[in-house]
């Protein structure tokens, strides 16, 4: 699968232009992370790829076909999308929620195969025990894994995820990102995630797209993109980058507190009651 974006621009109006001359070529079975500060247009970029938004200028192509000419139904077989926020207006069980993702492949009847795919995915994401629970009762982290499961059972060739690990604990952040990378490599799909955790992105991504002021600022391997200089330009933060197993590790520096001998204000404490 190959995503080609040429001279793309997107704005909600003439004054509110979000994305500017985006040129990207993303191909192959890999995990790509999009990083950048809030409001830089990461989600907008993803929405332009999966046809939720139409670019105001330029084109988005998948395998050489203009996205605007691919039907919604066909698009749902090519690309899947996992949103940042999960909302179900009415209570549904976890299985029913995940089964929605099978829609592009199934017809009226829910087959045993559909259920097999759903249950396998739930097990992979550590939430099989929640299968019959109501979606609305779950925690934010569990919601996120259910949404992820729904994206996975869709079995798309391109999977776009908007901060898929934002609500997860560290073990599940690593677990989910590893699953996504393995999925990309083993099943040959293109996985694109938006990430705010630079270390997770650095550890698992094959390539990173760094955005700055509505444009693509740097594209390349984690080692190429995550440099102290780039982080200062894009995020306006100081950092120290070391290398572990050939991948960058980012330590954030906060000058204001570096020389502070007594970081805990007088009179404040936390006790466990024992």
């Amino acid at each position: 699968m190959k995503v080609t974006i040429e001279g793309m621009e997107f704005g909600y109006s003439n004054e509110a232009v979000v994305l500017n001359d985006i040129d990207l070529d993303i191909a192959g079975a890999q995990l790509v992370s999009i990083v950048g500060p809030n409001g830089v247009g990461k989600s907008t970029l993803i929405h332009c790829i999966n046809k939720i938004l139409s670019p105001t200028k330029g084109t988005v192509m998948i395998d050489g076909r203009d996205v605007s000419e691919i039907s919604i139904k066909e698009m749902s077989k090519i690309s899947g999308y996992v949103p940042y926020t999960a909302n179900n207006s009415f209570p549904l069980s976890v299985v029913d929620t995940v089964l929605m993702g099978r829609h592009p492949h199934s017809n009226w009847k829910t087959t045993d195969h559909d259920l097999d795919v759903v249950y396998d995915t739930l097990r992979m994401l550590d939430i099989e025990h929640l299968a019959l629970r109501s979606f609305n009762e779950l925690s934010a982290g569990q919601h996120q894994r259910v949404m992820l499961a729904r994206g996975l059972v869709q079995e798309p060739k391109i999977l776009l995820l908007d901060e898929p690990t934002a609500n997860l604990d560290i073990r599940h952040q690593m677990n989910v990102t590893r699953i996504l990378r393995n999925l990309a490599h083993e099943k040959g799909i293109l996985v694109i995630i938006i990430s705010h955790d630079l270390n997770i992105a650095a550890t698992y991504s094959d390539n990173v797209i760094m955005m700055h002021e509505g444009r693509v600022f740097k594209v390349g391997s984690p080692m190429e993109v995550f440099t102290e200089e780039n982080l200062r330009t894009v995020y306006n933060v100081d950092s120290e980058i070391t290398v572990k197993n050939g991948r960058p590790r980012i330590v954030l520096l906060d000058d204001l507190y570096v020389d502070d001998d007594d970081p805990c204000p007088e009179g404040s404490y936390v006790s466990s009651g024992r």
Partner: peptide
Amino acid sequence: MAGENCAQTMGID
């Protein structure tokens, strides 16, 4: 029920 964006990416006009 999944919301407009998600419904569209799952093949619904």
